[in-house]
Design a protein around this nucleic acid. Sequence first.
DNA 1: ATTTTTATTTTGATTAACCAAAATTATGTT
DNA 2: AACATAATTTTGGTTAATCAAAATAAAAAT
Lengths: 238, 238
Amino acid sequence: MPSSTVENYLKQIFLEQQINGNDIVAMGKLSERMEVSPGTATSMVKLLDKSGLVNYEPRNGSILTNKGSEIAIHVLRRHRLIELFLVKELGLDWSEVHEEAETLEHSISDKVLEKIDIKLGHPSVDPHGDPIPSAEGKIERKKLVNLADCHAGQVARIGRILDQNSEFLKFINKYGIRPGQIVEIKDHDTIADAVNLAPKNNQPVTLGMHAASKISVEIIDKSSKNEINKRQSQSSNT
Amino acid sequence: MPSSTVENYLKQIFLEQQINGNDIVAMGKLSERMEVSPGTATSMVKLLDKSGLVNYEPRNGSILTNKGSEIAIHVLRRHRLIELFLVKELGLDWSEVHEEAETLEHSISDKVLEKIDIKLGHPSVDPHGDPIPSAEGKIERKKLVNLADCHAGQVARIGRILDQNSEFLKFINKYGIRPGQIVEIKDHDTIADAVNLAPKNNQPVTLGMHAASKISVEIIDKSSKNEINKRQSQSSNT
DNA sequence: ATTTTTATTTTGATTAACCAAAATTATGTT
DNA sequence: AACATAATTTTGGTTAATCAAAATAAAAAT
């Protein structure tokens, strides 16, 4: 049974792989994510390699094995189900559940986890819009696009909020912008550096491009002129 | 912030004090409860003494300070609220929640704990009938009596089940014997070495004296069989 | 009052995680 | 190519929690 430290290393490697296209993860990046000294990360990764959880290439970095990946995904499942549970069942604010889940993800048994999963009706996304892996480890991956790259006339579903900042979350939530919500892009003005969007059943709201770039969406209706989406939507946290 | 190891030491000392009349706890007893070698317990207790959580008398034993007691009670509150939550909200069986709570009691934040407390309606006993300390650390202490010492005609509320054995719990549960349940003692026969009791809305059951001694109750009506008992309202706590 | 038994403490070692700082190797720049 | 910079690994050391086995002290039995 992996310690919670080991689980965290695997999780961080996994998350980093997610945004770098499954490339090998540099020791610097890992030690930064884990908030430990580089030397510590090195010796840890050697141990993980020895137990067959990562492949470690000295002077280069490390990448998860299947076994390591499985564990990481399971941790992520726990984390995200717990987050949703805390919001939906216990009424915590979505801005505060991340920290809570950070510790609970290592102490909840599979038995309790599955009860939670049932109670929530086998949900597929957590309160930040991050996908919840299935019990079998499958992650439903949607092609998300940055809101700042959308065009006027498009209809989209809010996917993920990339900024976990509590103030930001409260702000957008107030205007009806939250994962799952359908919105229509009313206007995208490069000169004004702003996007105007109307969440269904809500007043339209105008966001500056910087704020818009913290929100990634899934395009439902491409009905406007077609262009290439350049900005990548990346996940910041779990 | 005390480590979960420290929390466990304090909890075990507290529990042992409870049953030995707040006397000093011998190192042997502690090391046995903690399932560590005697030497380990000794060195740990020295540290606890240094941090003002216990008073350690070499060659004699240790006893909690107020500070240590406060922490122990808080851990117990967490443990018991979690147990009840797992049974009531997530539908786990009361025979399996003890183990789960054993780890969760160290990782749940006070914020989440209070949400759970609210959701459960500030309960005062856990699924085994053990009292749940209040947020302020008060423990409601009822005068409980052994079922084996009750007399025919008495009406009592099941208090605690002293045997955590899963089979036993399942058995008595099947016959409606569980904490909070009101029962009437129909017969107490020393010769037959048995007690016959009728849980409200259930068939009467006969228990051998040994089994009966694993159940402690709170006497509600001391009247012997010469009086008509008026029913009082009961809570539907399970 | 000795001896034996039991309880407790000490000693020396181990393991998982960590750090700081020195040594090494790659990378980038002139 | 030679030097400077950045990333990585090594080295030596720390802390919390543990154990086994030796040493000591207290309690019980003879």
